[in-house]
Every structure is written in structure tokens, then in C-alpha cells.
């Protein structure tokens, strides 16, 4: 039982990332009808927003310490971060320590801006082109973004730790009456799950309870009619692209302490997120969230030793296997609507 709870928790945080990326993908597909293969790159850019802020906050000035030597035997240069010099060592180091949560504020405008530029600068020219063209151009864009990041940040993962107070893990075992250490779970991963839930709720709330959201939903259902009513739906859809980019970016920011960011991390999530979108149903926001968590949990369970001993390698194919079964039973996905991508 304890093993099942443990893998359920594992699946929740993996599912949170899938759900957040798939949510953004579905928003873009539902509004603009674009299959955006650069969405994984937006997730990666979000993680690098955290890396960048951490570097900005750690910017230092150098002083020579004649009592110490560097690796060449020259007098050592000691680096002191500016924030520590401005705010004192204690507050300064706390600010650096909290760089990942602070990066949320840093990333929102940047990601919305990147999304806006991407949509206006490139993707809008492909609205009337076939999906295959859209996939090619966005996939190409993803590769360009990846290479630019690699050029500036290198190929190796960059450690981006969570604040000290979130280090360590919570012992669910003791709470649930199991042996101590039987079900432990890192604090930051719990934070990630609740953060994802909050973002998902915020996106749904925004679409459900604001006039802007209502117009967007109406545009998703019938773009022409909304346009005929004199509403500039294209402009709203562009803003939605920016919001979708911000959602992917925030998912990336908070994921940075879980896996040290590297230029390739977006691609690792992209394919799986597309499977999530298809399983959830093209264009269905609740479907994307539901499928994200479902497939995250299934992937987690399939990597249990007990299951791998019976079915070796199942963890590599489980998501695709389940996708095939669901699409055979429900060709439109779990919550897909009639008429979407069926012309």
C-alpha cells in the first residue's frame, strides 16, 4: 500500500508538469488552431528564466585576497555578490536563496513578451497553412531556441536549487500509520503540485469568470460569428498565446529545482505533452489536465520494480500504449469535442 501511495505522489508532480504544458498547448490549438511544437521550448525558457535571475542576483564584484591563491598560484580573486554588499550578507544571501520563487515574477512578463513576439513575428503567417507546415516551422523554431540557449548557457545542466526551507522531504509514512521513511516526499515537489493546481485554477477562472475569457471561449466555439459582432478576436487570441507561453514558462520556472535545467529539457516533455493533448481530446482544456495527471501517474506506476519485473521496459511505452487503447475506445480522446481536427 505504501508503495502505491508513493508512486501516486510521484505521478502527481510529473502529471502537474504534463498538465501545465498540455494546458498551454490546448489553449493555443483551441484559439489559434496552431499545432505548436515550440511549446516545449517555452517550458525550457521558463526554467532558464530561473537560471538567469539566479545569475543576475549572484552578480559579484571581485576583490584580491593576497592570503589565498587560485589554481595557477596567483593571488585569489574573491567574489562577493552585489546584493550581499547592498543588503548585508544575511538578507543578500536570502534573496539569492529565493531566486526560484522570485523568478515567477521575473518570468511572467518575459514569457508573455516572448509568446507575443513568436505569434506576431512568425506563427501568424502560418494560420492558413496546413498543420504539417505549422509543425515544421514550430519544430524548427524549437531547435533554434534550444541552440541559442546552448550557446549562452552551455550544454550541461545548471543547478538551480529551491530555497533552503524547502529542502528535505515530508514523511507521509508516519502520518498515514506506515513505517517511518516508507512514504517520503520532497517538500519542493509538493510545492510544485500545489503551484500547478493554482495555475490551472487561475486559467480556468480567467476563462470562465472574466469578460475577456468569455469572448475567448466564444471565439474558440465560433470565431467568425464573434468577429462579425465587431470584436477583435485575433488580438485576444494573440494575448491568449502570450498567456499560454507564460503558463509553460511558469511550469518551467518551478521545475528548475526538480531537474537542473538544460537546453534539451523542453524536447523531453514535448512529445509526451502532445500525447497528453491527444488523449485528453484536441481542444479540450479539462481533458488536457485530466490526461496530464492520468498519464503522469500511470508512468510513475509503470516504473515500479514489481511491475517492471513482470513487463520489462513497460515504463518506456506505457503512455503510448494507453494512448492507443484510449483512442481506439474513444477516438476523440477522453473529453474531445466533435468536429475538432476532423475535417
Amino acid at each position: 500500500m505504501d508503495v502505491i501511495i508513493l508512486q501516486l505522489l510521484n505521478g502527481l508532480d510529473k502529471g502537474s508538469a504534463y498538465a501545465l504544458i498540455a494546458l498551454g498547448l490546448t489553449l493555443i490549438f483551441g484559439t489559434l488552431g496552431v499545432v505548436n511544437f515550440a511549446h516545449g521550448a517555452l517550458f525550457m525558457l521558463g526554467a532558464f528564466c530561473a537560471v538567469t535571475l539566479q545569475r543576475i542576483l549572484s552578480l559579484s564584484f571581485e576583490t584580491i585576497d593576497p592570503t589565498k591563491t587560485d589554481f595557477l598560484g596567483n593571488p585569489a580573486k574573491i567574489k562577493t555578490p552585489y546584493v550581499e554588499s547592498w543588503f548585508g550578507p544575511e538578507l543578500g544571501s536570502s534573496i539569492i536563496d529565493w531566486s526560484v520563487p522570485l523568478a515567477i515574477l521575473f518570468a511572467i512578463p518575459i514569457m508573455i513578451g516572448i509568446g507575443y513576439i513568436m505569434e506576431r513575428g512568425l506563427i501568424k503567417h502560418f494560420y492558413k497553412r496546413p498543420h504539417a507546415d505549422q509543425i515544421l516551422v514550430t519544430f524548427g523554431l524549437a531547435i533554434v531556441i534550444q541552440e541559442v540557449i546552448k550557446q549562452f548557457y552551455g550544454a550541461n545542466p545548471i543547478p538551480t536549487p529551491a530555497p533552503d526551507m524547502f529542502k528535505g522531504s515530508f514523511d507521509f509514512g508516519t502520518l498515514l500509520g506506515f513505517d517511518p521513511n516508507a512514504v517520503i516526499y520532497p517538500y519542493w515537489r509538493l510545492v510544485y503540485f500545489f503551484f500547478a493546481a493554482l495555475i490551472i485554477a487561475a486559467v480556468f477562472g480567467f476563462l470562465q469568470f472574466t469578460t475577456f475569457g468569455m469572448v475567448v471561449r466564444a471565439g474558440m466555439a465560433d470565431r467568425e460569428t464573434v468577429g462579425l459582432l465587431g470584436i477583435n478576436i485575433d488580438r485576444r487570441f494573440t494575448i491568449m498565446f502570450g498567456i499560454a507561453a507564460a503558463v509553460a514558462g511558469l511550469a518551467g520556472v518551478m521545475y528548475a529545482p526538480i531537474n537542473s535545467p538544460n537546453y534539451h529539457m523542453g524536447m523531453d516533455f514535448l512529445v509526451l505533452s502532445f500525447v497528453v493533448v491527444v488523449v485528453g481530446g484536441m481542444g479540450s482544456l479539462p481533458g488536457a489536465v485530466l490526461a496530464g495527471f492520468l498519464l503522469g501517474i500511470l508512468e510513475s506506476f509503470s516504473s515500479m520494480n514489481q511491475i517492471k519485473q513482470i513487463l520489462p521496459g513497460i515504463d518506456q511505452i506505457i503512455i503510448y500504449l494507453v494512448a492507443i487503447i484510449i483512442l481506439l475506445v474513444r477516438p476523440r480522446g477522453l473529453m474531445g469535442r466533435k468536429g475538432v481536427m476532423e475535417d
Binding site: 545542466p157 521513511n181 515537489r189 537542473s260 538544460n262 510513475s300 515500479m304
Partner: peptide, 29 residues
């Protein structure tokens, strides 16, 4: 890239040492 589902069962296995036969990005993660 995410080793959490491999790491989670370690403590409950009776082991008191974890040997990571990983290199590069695998080891970091």
C-alpha cells in the same frame, strides 16, 4: 531525466547505501 520514481522506493528496500552508476546528465539528475 526524472529519477524520482526510481529513487522513491530506495529507502524502503532495506538498503543503506545508494550507488548511482550514472554519468553526465543522468548522474546530475
Amino acid at each position: 531525466t526524472d529519477f524520482s520514481s526510481y529513487v522513491a522506493p530506495v529507502l524502503n528496500s532495506g538498503a543503506d547505501v545508494l550507488v548511482l552508476n550514472h554519468y553526465g546528465g543522468n548522474m546530475v539528475n
